[in-house]
Simulated scan of single mutants.
Amino acid sequence: MRILVVTESFLPHMNGVTNSVLRVVDHFASTGDDVQIIAPKQPGCEKFLRTSTGRKVRVRRITSVPMAGYHDVRIATTSALSLRQKIDDFGPDVIHLASPTILGGRAVVAAQKLGIPTVAVYQTDIPGYTAKYGMPFLESASWQLLRDVHNRATFTLAPSTHTRDELVEHGIERVDLWRRGVDTSLFGPRHRSASLRRRLADPGERIVVYVGRLAPEKQVGDLQVVHDIPGVRLVIVGDGPDRDALQRQMPRARFVGFRSGEDLAAHLASADLFIHPGELETFCQTIQEAMASGLPAIAPRRGGPVDLIAPSRTGWLYTPGRLDELRDAAADLLFDDAKRAAFGQAALESVAQRSWPALSEQLRGHYQRAMAMHRVGVA
């Protein structure tokens, strides 16, 4: 199969979209498929991606500019004609649109003109982000943009049932589910480190870990109710524009910056509980990584976490905005060692079969379905 991935976000910027693209591209390249990537050009970018098996995947970079005030986000400025030429040069069987907005919108129009099926993968709650960044007046326009892009695609894949239902409610057609994989070969309880725990917390303290960007949409400041619990040490893994303000707000927390690979795996496995307070998560990959590390998880009862966390078995869900519920749920697990261990084991078992190769093969099935639909003129 010849697979073209068009992504709004890619290396050197690392986020959930980039991670998913890297995982599926690595899988398809290793299984013999011909894969190419189109992504925004930015400083420090490479023209080729080397996969885990040593294969080189070409990355065709297109002209882009940084978004004002948020330089990690790139806005494609290439013409539709130029993009169509790049697509036509490769001649894909199917186009994977990763979190499509501006670049993805131009790509799906080009694909329609070239007669190529497209699978749009929804990952970023852009309408929700507009409110968090003080621009609620853009929410309606954001939904209109998403409808225009996704309804041109052969079909759309949502990462969770909540997100699927929300897309349908806002007029997006032909929506199915495709969840995300987790690297069970990397994350696991075996990475628990007594020496790391000693560096992060005082003897006898319970460790709560958060992993993610330090930005308004993640609502990391809500973790203050846990930071203030006696006998608890909050560890913040990640970086972003809110870091300085959060350090002032929660002076006892350990801010360890961005971590990856086995270093990240060790920080997760060495904690006692994982909490993600963001209410705009379409999936929340870090919850799966925490569960694969043997940790119970707590998150708001909204978005992707609703599908990932089984209350009273693998963690707790709390009512969005009810930080008293968050504090009570954290205390319930932190100070009951037997319950925490049982929840952690159940969490580990719940993600054991969600490897990236398995999820990538599910995605291959979606590609094949898109190609079949296109042949018979369904979409």
Rank of each mutant, 00 (worst) to 15 (best):
R174H: 13
W143D: 09
I95H: 02
L145C: 09
L177E: 08
V168A: 11
K132V: 09
A110L: 08
L138H: 02
L138P: 02
Y129H: 13
Q112C: 09
D125C: 01
I102S: 13
E166T: 14
A131E: 15
H162N: 13
S142K: 02
L103H: 06
V121F: 07
E139C: 11
E139M: 14
T161N: 15
L114K: 10
A120E: 02
Y122G: 07
Q112K: 13
W143L: 04
L177V: 05
D93G: 10
P100V: 01
L186H: 07
A131Y: 04
Q123H: 13
A131N: 13
S99H: 06
D148E: 15
G171D: 11
A158I: 02
A158H: 03
N151I: 12
D165M: 07
R147P: 10
Y122I: 04
A98K: 01
A111M: 11
T154W: 01
R179E: 15
P100N: 08
N151V: 12
G128Y: 02
R106Y: 13
D176F: 08
I126S: 00
E139K: 15
G188S: 14
Y122Q: 08
S142P: 07
H191M: 06
S185W: 05
S193K: 03
A98H: 01
D176S: 12
S193M: 03
D125F: 03
V121C: 05
Y122M: 11
R190I: 12
I102N: 12
S193T: 04
I102P: 02
R152P: 05
R179N: 13
H162F: 14
L146H: 01
A111F: 05
Q144M: 14
V175F: 05
S142E: 10
R174W: 07
Y129T: 07
R192H: 13
A111W: 04
T156R: 00
T163Y: 00
L138E: 09
I126E: 03
R174K: 12
P117I: 06
A111P: 10
T154Y: 02
I126F: 06
R192I: 06
T130C: 02
Q123P: 05
G105Y: 00
R147K: 10
E169C: 09
V175H: 06
S142T: 10
Y133E: 09
R106S: 14
A153S: 14
T118H: 02
D183L: 12
L167W: 00
P117M: 09
V175A: 10
H96P: 04
D176Y: 08
T154P: 04
G181C: 07
L145H: 06
P136T: 09
A107I: 05
H162V: 12
F155L: 04
S140R: 08
G171C: 08
F137P: 06
D148Q: 15
Y122S: 13
L103C: 04
Q144A: 14
P117T: 09
D93W: 00
D93R: 03
P117C: 10
S142L: 03
A111Q: 09
A107P: 02
T163L: 06
P100K: 02
E169D: 15
R180Y: 03
